[in-house]
Design a protein around this nucleic acid. Structure first.
Lengths: 114, 114
DNA sequence: CATTCAAATGAACACCTGTTCATATGAAAG
DNA sequence: CTTTCATATGAACAGGTGTTCATTTGAATG
């Protein structure tokens, strides 16, 4: 009398699965969007390119906190920056960022309609 | 001599920003995707509906760990389940989940091409 | 109703993450 | 070269998160 057997099903599922490395990268990517501060920064940058102190003013948070998060976002290639004198302007790295956020936003709004 | 002034820009940006509640919900949503175990579960479920023990076998993790994560995913309305005797089968709650993951996946693959 | 198997739950613990505070870098201006 | 302003960075700390272990629930079966 054996336990519940899934070997057949599981080997089929396993085939179509991306590698663990890939899935880990994917989770890492989404984790970047999974913090309120970072989400607010990303949304702000989707409206306009902004310098660090403007963002910290906008969000009512310390310059240090913003700077740390911008580093995280930059390391994850979600934002990029350019320097102009003492000021550093940040902006979204590409349209994917916007699209990912939009997809999430849609999910939320449609969820509410139910 | 005043500091850098952004009031005009900031009030414009502020107008187009969703409420903080909304942005927090959005971050909460993405946070669900931001863990390797949950991502592996979601991807597996995008291939087939699976019971808890099948998932734990597939991922090589304890039933308890999987069960805890499934609860998180269910509370976040990313997955749903149906019971059949002693067995509980989990599946993706809707197509949005797949689309969000796909969007992220695309981002990763296109990033590599550069 | 006792047993068995699948799943869920709670407490505990180690690890990770985000913020703060203090300080450093780096560019422009005096 | 010193000062000033914008930004970056490092250490430290608090709170959150994921896993494990032990236990419980709940359905089917003898």
């Amino acid at each position: 009398m054996k336990k519940h057997d899934h070997t057949a099903l599981l080997s089929r599922v396993r085939e179509d699965l991306p590698t663990d490395d890939r899935l880990c990268d994917l989770a890492d990517l989404f984790r970047l969007f999974g913090d309120t501060t970072r989400m607010r920064i990303l949304y702000a940058l989707s409206e306009a390119e902004l310098c660090v102190c403007a963002i910290s003013e906008l969000l009512g948070m310390t310059q240090s906190a913003i700077s740390h998060q911008l580093k995280v976002l930059k390391d994850g290639d979600l934002v990029a920056c350019r320097r102009e004198g003492k000021t550093v302007y940040y902006f979204l790295a590409d349209d994917h960022v916007r699209r990912i956020i939009d997809q999430g936003y849609e999910h939320l709004t449609e969820e509410k309609e139910l």
